[in-house]
Design a protein around this nucleic acid. Structure first.
Lengths: 222, 222
DNA sequence: ACGATATAGATATGAATTACACATATCAGT
DNA sequence: ACTGATATGTGTAATTCATATCTATATCGT
């Protein structure tokens, strides 16, 4: 079946930058392309917007289909529409980004496990299309938003220590933080609560475990 | 001539929220629609993205064609893609916003002068499509960005007084400011310089005129 | 000359951010 | 059981930043 228009229409996709802090580093989930163009290159999960779904719905669907993720923080990032960014036809990509806890996702998505992999943001492979630029823009947005919102908590598992949370903040912003000042600040925001449980992680004093008071909430602060 | 695709393609437009501070109020430039749908309603300037131009180029072109504006601060805002937002066909709009000095634009655009008009943000008419929502999102972005960037200077004419600048900040953020603290703050940023000239505006001490040191520059501050 | 009006400049106060050092609880090895 | 290694946990002083407030100045209109 064919679809005919009086004027040329671009194709529209959504591509999604999936961030997580794993192994003490900010990482991004990428998918190895099985077909042309850029066959064998790594790329962001994403795909064409269906004619009967909104942009948000498309991003959610791709997130589920290609990365097996649901119920995560999802935010529209920016739209990329340079000529020639896709060699096949004119394609405009509405990029999204999402944050997910490290436990939340075993990368065993769409087709094959070897096709889906986490990469440290500092060690990205060659990327298809303009996906390197999309990731760069997403990284900037993330770093900025860590500073003036409570988005950072979206990286955390059900229970976590203050040190783990500090590492998330340090990795996502690229800044190092003073332990005492970070604790004072994050506790003053009244966003997390002690669970009472402790977490023994090695030959040292065990850490208090915390939980998020209102896990689905992301607020602007400052 | 017709254009045929194997899968249905949405149409893509850019729509532009043009802000200015005029008559001591934040205003938006709107265009009265001459054709269906929403004939006679007011709408944002904008139009379909051509197959051989980028999104930014399209926004710049529309800005020129429909509002007679060039060389203004232009930033991509957000993409709106809900089903049914245009009754004709599936249309995705990549919205932009721009800031222009009050002297910069005599609204005598595209076709007819009566078709182009400034509206105070607090007194908007019925709007076509989802343009009311686009303006709402743009207003939020503007207010936020006034606080952490030097975007506000893009509203200013060649020469201006500190009081005029303060009014711009108050109108764009919706907050009232203390005159002395505002002056101290804006001068400490080292973004503007005295021209030496003065501006006599009534039965009171004339105000010093200032100019922007680097008019094309917009930086993140704080 | 005098009143009205908006411009202009300095200081004190409180709030928020930053800098900084040592005791504690556990595990591993002897 | 003692010792060393390691990450957790805590308080106070200094500084910077934001806020609040008061009085003098230059012009216009009468």
């Amino acid at each position: 079946m064919n679809y005919t228009y009086q004027y040329p229409h671009p194709a529209v996709t959504t591509d999604i930058v999936i961030f997580s802090v794993r192994d003490n580093a900010l990482q991004v989930l990428l998918i190895k392309r099985g077909g042309e163009p850029f066959k064998g290159s790594w790329a962001l999960p994403g795909g064409f917007v269906r004619i009967d779904e909104s942009l948000d719905e498309c991003a959610k669907r791709e997130l589920h289909e290609e990365a097996g993720l649901e119920d995560v923080y999802l935010e529209q990032l920016y739209s990329f529409g340079k000529i020639g960014r896709d060699p096949r036809e004119r394609v405009i990509s509405v990029a999204y980004f999402t944050l997910t806890p490290s436990e939340h996702l075993k990368p065993s998505a769409g087709t094959d496990a070897s096709d889906v992999k986490w990469f440290a943001i500092s060690e990205l492979p060659e990327l298809a299309f303009d996906h390197a630029e999309i990731i760069r823009v997403a990284r900037e947005r993330l770093a900025a938003k860590m500073e003036y919102s409570t988005i950072g908590l979206q990286f955390m598992n059900e229970e976590f220590t203050l040190s783990q949370l500090q590492i998330v903040y340090e990795q996502a912003t690229g800044k190092t933080l003073d332990k005492r000042n970070f604790r004072k600040w994050i506790l003053s925001l009244d966003l997390i609560a002690e669970t009472g449980k402790k977490f023994a992680a090695g030959a040292h004093r065990p850490a208090m475990l915390y939980r998020i008071k209102d896990p689905d909430r992301v607020d602007i602060i400052r």
